[in-house]
């Protein structure tokens, strides 16, 4: 069941990618895309899909994944303006350091997306990760305590990612 699902899921994603890259919807393109997508999926090694089984298509998860996009955009724009302000000050206004942050996410993919989100918002940059501890380079260190830093940096993203990746 799980393997059948990951086969269909990966083939569908590859086929969609092909159609976007080809940029047309005529029958020839669609058939070539389908054949190539199935072949590539057959060639990949036989493990389960990285994202998980059929439960990833649960409506609640999809809803949160869609809500995550505007949240992320808002975070990126706000922090970009913040960093832009720091760059343009006559004396660059920074107070940098590397702080420890604990995440409560369990799934590896969820942790990866969290680290990427933290890196995408300027002002914070994931330098290293071991287990549930992340080391974040922070342009303006507001607290040295791991608890408080986690609340400040990661809690907003975790609220969504917890639901999306389980």
């Amino acid at each position: 069941m799980n393997r059948l699902f990951s086969f269909i899921f990966i083939t569908a994603v590859l086929w969609l990618l092909w159609l976007v890259l080809a940029g047309s919807l005529n029958a020839q393109e669609m058939m070539t895309g389908a054949v190539v997508a199935v072949l590539v999926t057959l060639l990949r090694n036989d493990g389960p899909c990285l994202l998980g089984g059929p439960e990833i298509l649960h409506p609640r998860r999809i809803l949160y994944a869609i809500l995550y996009i505007p949240y992320m955009m808002r975070a990126i724009i706000l922090s970009n303006l913040d960093v832009a302000g720091r760059i343009l000050k006559p004396q660059v206004a920074i107070n940098p350091g590397i702080v420890k942050v604990k995440t409560r996410l369990k799934s590896p993919v969820g942790r990866m997306v969290l680290a990427n989100s933290i890196t995408l918002t300027p002002g914070t940059l994931a330098v290293d990760i071991t287990g549930d501890t992340m080391y974040i380079h922070w342009v303006d260190v507001e607290s040295r305590d791991a608890e408080a830093a986690s609340r400040k940096i990661a809690a907003g993203f975790e609220k969504y990612l917890e639901v999306i990746f389980g």
């Binding site: 990126i76 724009i77 922090s79 970009n80 960093v83 832009a84 720091r86 760059i87 920074i94 940098p96 590397i98 890196t119 995408l120 918002t121 300027p122 002002g123 914070t124 940059l125 330098v127 380079h137 342009v139």
Partner: peptide
């Protein structure tokens, strides 16, 4: 590290 904060992230937006 600070260069990365400014450089790669501002260019992403």
């Amino acid at each position: 590290y600070n260069k990365m904060q400014a450089g790669t992230k501002a260019t992403t937006l």
